[in-house]
């Protein structure tokens, strides 16, 4: 199965967060590598999206959506770093 970049989750995630989570920086608890979520690998299917570390493949995050609810789990990462930038528009 093929994968996309974390960047492709900007839409689904912006339904739940007030900032673009894909540019947040996270440290993988598996291998310690630090990167923007936009750089992670996303395995998406109708069942949900599984975000994996680009360096070691560990699951960093999952997103499952039903018609009326969503489940977002930050599994394999520690704190996320978010740049404080003014929001336009």
């Amino acid at each position: 199965m093929t994968h996309l970049d974390g960047n492709s989750l900007a839409g689904p995630l912006s339904e739940f967060f007030a900032f673009d989570v894909t540019v947040a920086v996270a440290k993988c608890e598996g291998c310690g590598s630090i990167a923007e979520l936009a750089r992670a690998m996303v395995y998406s299917s109708d069942a949900g999206s599984v975000v994996r570390c680009d360096s070691c493949g560990q699951v960093l995050m999952t997103l499952v959506e039903s018609e009326d609810r969503a489940w977002i789990r930050f599994t394999g990462m520690g704190a996320i770093e978010v740049a404080r930038t003014p929001t336009a528009g």
């Binding site: 199965m1 994968h3 299917s45 069942a47 994996r52 493949g57 699951v59």
Partner: peptide, 9 residues
């Protein structure tokens, strides 16, 4: 036969 997957094959 749709494929569901959580990671690489």
């Amino acid at each position: 036969f749709p494929v569901l997957s959580a990671g690489p094959t």
